[in-house]
Write a protein that binds this DNA or RNA. Structure first.
Lengths: 346, 346
DNA sequence: GAATTGAGGACAGGAACTGGCACCTGTCGT
DNA sequence: ACGACAGGTGCCAGTTCCTGTCCTCAATTC
C-alpha cells in the first residue's frame, strides 16, 4: 500500500495502535504544543484513548508533558533518551547534506558519529532522495580554497562505512600516490578521519597484509556481500596505524606564524585547524599560530584571510608562495577591466 | 535485554508489540544484515512472531527484504518513505552539529529544511547533549574568512524557529544597525535565509508593524508561551519582504571579475556564492564571475583562493583592497622570522 | 466559583497478539 | 539431484490488550 509515512490515512476501521503511536510521536515532534482534542481527532480516536497513548509513550520513556486547565495541551520535552526522529523528505535530504559536510571536515569527536548517522540515513533513503543529496552536494563546497578536501560523493563514503560496520568484504579501484591504479579486494576494518581526510584501514586480501587507503583515492567501492570474521587489527588504535603509514610518505607542512591579533580571534577564525597561543608583543596583541596543512595555498589563504598583519616563521618556502600570491593579487588589481590581457595564468 | 532506547525493560507480563516493532526498526537500521533467529532472540520472541513483526513493518510501508536459504537474513532497504530514525546520543550530537552548519551557510533549498530538522532534534534532545552540541559548535567555523557569518548558537536559532513554527510570541533584545539596543516583543512569522544570514520576519507588537530582524543581532530570544493567531503576512513572499528591507540599507557589493579558468572550476570552488559563465578568451579558458559579497575581504579571498590569474571588473574599490592585501602578504613574506617588527598592523 | 482540560478507574465487547505445528518455497553446498 | 537451511504462509486456541463510554478528580484560568 502507498503508505506515506506511518500513516495509512483515514484508517476507517483499522485499530493498529503501533502505527498510531508513531504518528503521535511524529505529530509531537512537529509542533511544540498540541491540545489533546486536536490530537485525538487527527489520530481518529477518542480522547480517552489518546490519554492512554500518552501513557504508553510515557511508559516507553518519552517525557510527554501536559498542561491542564484552559488552554492546556501536550508537549514533548527533552528527556533522557532520544526518541526516533520522524523526518520528511526535505528534512532527510538536509540532514544528509549537513551530516556529509560534517563528515567531510571531521570535527573533533563527531566524525565517526556523523558517518554512522549518515550511513543509517542513506541506507534507508529512497533513491530519489539520494539523487537529491548528490545533486546538492555539489553546491556545498565548504570553503573555496579548501581544494585539498574535494568533497567525496555520499555513496562511496557510506558504502565503505557500511562495509566496515557490517564486516563485509569490499572491492574497489585504488590509485596509489604515484598514480598507478589497480583493483583491490579487502576486508575493511575501520574508517579513520585524520587531518581533513578519511582513511580506510583494511586487510588487503591479495597482498595479505594490512593497508590504509586514502578514501578520496578509492574508486567505486562496492560490497561483495561476503561477510568475514574480524581479524586481529594491526594496531589497537586504527588512527595510529594510519598516522604511521602516512608519516612515511607525504608529511604535511608544519606552518608556524606570528599573527598580530589575539589568539582568541585566530582560533575563532581558523578554528580547529590551528593552535594559537598569545605571546607578548610590544606592538599590540599578538599570538603564535601553529597549523598543519598539506597544501601551501591553504595555509596562505588561512593566514591571509585573517585580515591582520602576520609573519611566517616556520617553513621558509611559504614566503615564496606568499610573494607569488601577493604578485597575483597585485596583477589582478593592476590590470584594466578588459578581460583580454597577458596570459600569465596557468 | 537491557535495551537502551524504546524499551521499558523486561516487561514481565506486558506484550508491548509497538515498542518491539520500534526496537526491531532500530536493530535493522543499525546493521545491514540480520539473521532472523538472532533478531528473534534479541527481541525475546519466537521466530514465528518475528516474521509477523516483519509483516507488520512491511504493511507500514518499510521495505524489509529477506534472503532465504543458508546464510539468509533480513535487511532494510531503501524504500518509498523514510522510516523513523533511531539514533544514539553521539549520532544525535553529530546530527545537530552538521545540521547547524548546514543551516548557517544556507544552501539552495535545504536551509529551511535543515532548520526544521534541527528544531525537531534540539527540541527533544536531552540537556546534556545540547551542551555537547554547544561545545562542539565552537569548533565548527566553516570557513576562516567567512567572518561575516559568525556562527549562531544552536539555542537561539532553534528557539526562534520553534516560535515561528508554533506561532508563539517572542521576546528578545535587538541591536539595530546603528548600535542602539532595545527589547522587542514580536509575533514571529518566518525565518528567511538570505545571502549568508538568517532574517526573522515578525510583527513588532510595540511598533505595530512588520519588521525584519537580522538573526545574528537578536539576543536571548525566548518564547513567551503566548500563542497568537497568524496575521496577514506583509508580503506573499517573506524573502521578498526581507530583501526589500535590506536593500534600503546596506546593499552588498556586486563583484564582477574575469578569471582565467573554466567556469566549471570556479563553480566547483566558490560554488553557490557565485555565478560563472565561460567567455571566449584568446589565452586559454576564462570565465566571467559575478558574486555578491557584503564584505570586500570576502571577495578578495574567494577570488584569490582560486589559485589562478584574474582581473576585477566591477567595483573599482576592490582593486585598492586587492593591493592592500597583496601588500600585507608581501610584508608577511618579507619580514624576518622574528616576531618583533614594525607595527604596520591595525 | 465556573469553565476548561487533563488524569484515571471501571466495564464490556471485540480485536489482535502469541506460540506451536504443518507445509511450502527458494538457495546453497555436497 | 538431493538435503539442509531459513524464510513465508495458513491455521488454531488461548490470552491479552485495546477501545469507547461513563463517571469522578485535579489543576488552572478567568
Amino acid at each position: 500500500m502507498p503508505v506515506p509515512v506511518l500513516n495509512s490515512g483515514q484508517t476507517s476501521g483499522m485499530g493498529d495502535t503501533g502505527s498510531r503511536t508513531l504518528r503521535l510521536l511524529s505529530l509531537l515532534q512537529g509542533r511544540r504544543w498540541w491540545p489533546g482534542a486536536e490530537l485525538a481527532e487527527r489520530l481518529g480516536v477518542s480522547v480517552r484513548t489518546l490519554r492512554r497513548d500518552m501513557d504508553r509513550l510515557r511508559e516507553l520513556g518519552y517525557p510527554v508533558e501536559a498542561q491542564r486547565g484552559v488552554d492546556g495541551g501536550y508537549q514533548l520535552a527533552p528527556g533522557a533518551a532520544l526518541p526516533p526522529l520522524v523526518l520528511d523528505d526535505e528534512e532527510a535530504v538536509a540532514l544528509a547534506v549537513g551530516l556529509q559536510s560534517a563528515a567531510q571536515a571531521p570535527v573533533a569527536g563527531t566524525a565517526e558519529a556523523s558517518l554512522r548517522a549518515l550511513s543509517k540515513v542513506v541506507q534507508v533513503m529512497p533513491a530519489r532522495l539520494r539523487r537529491q543529496v548528490e545533486a546538492l552536494r555539489a553546491a556545498t563546497v565548504s570553503a573555496p580554497w579548501q581544494q585539498a578536501a574535494e568533497p567525496l560523493p555520499v555513496g562511496p563514503l557510506t558504502a565503505v562505512a557500511v562495509a566496515c560496520r557490517d564486516a563485509e568484504r569490499l572491492r574497489f579501484d585504488y590509485v596509489t600516490a604515484d598514480g598507478r591504479s589497480g583493483a583491490r579486494h579487502v576486508e575493511p576494518h575501520r574508517l579513520v578521519p585524520l587531518g581533513r581526510r578519511w582513511y580506510l584501514v583494511a586487510y588487503d586480501l591479495e597482498r595479505h597484509d594490512w593497508r590504509s587507503f586514502r578514501l578520496d583515492r578509492v574508486e567505486a567501492p562496492r560490497g561483495t556481500g561476503a561477510r568475514f570474521a574480524p581479524r586481529q587489527p594491526p594496531a589497537a588504535d586504527a588512527a595510529a596505524f594510519v598516522r604511521a603509514g602516512i608519516a612515511a610518505l607525504a608529511r604535511p607542512i608544519e606552518v608556524e606564524a606570528v599573527v598580530r591579533a589575539p589568539a582568541a580571534v585566530v582560533r575563532q577564525r581558523i578554528g580547529r585547524w590551528a593552535e594559537a597561543e598569545d605571546v607578548a608583543g610590544e606592538a599590540g596583541p599578538a599570538c603564535r599560530v601553529r597549523m598543519q596543512a598539506d597544501d601551501e595555498g591553504w595555509a596562505v589563504m588561512a593566514l591571509g584571510s585573517l585580515g591582520v598583519e602576520f609573519t611566517v616563521v616556520e617553513p621558509p618556502e611559504l614566503r615564496a608562495r606568499l610573494r607569488e600570491v601577493a604578485a597575483r593579487l597585485e596583477r589582478a588589481a593592476g590590470l584594466s577591466a578588459a578581460p583580454q590581457r597577458t596570459p600569465t595564468g596557468r
